[in-house]
Amino acid sequence: MHLADVTSGRSVVISALGASPEAVTRLREIGLRPGVSVRVLQRSAFGAVVVAHGFSSVALDRETARSIAVESQ
């Protein structure tokens, strides 16, 4: 399952990051690393996804959300 498939309001655990090396670096820097739990807050226009991680909200475009493998909590 990928983050792009998760419905709004559900919490999942990131299992793998498959985006471009730059995007993977950025995702890890801001805290979206394998093993971390996130909740999908909002599905926005054109497939963008907003997830809650800790107290912050992080917006991801459709491709990046598709490249993040997640597991149910």
Partner: peptide
């Protein structure tokens, strides 16, 4: 720098 960064943005 990549041609176009993916959107990974802390709101």
């Amino acid at each position: 720098e990549p041609e176009r960064e993916s959107l990974v943005l802390v709101l």
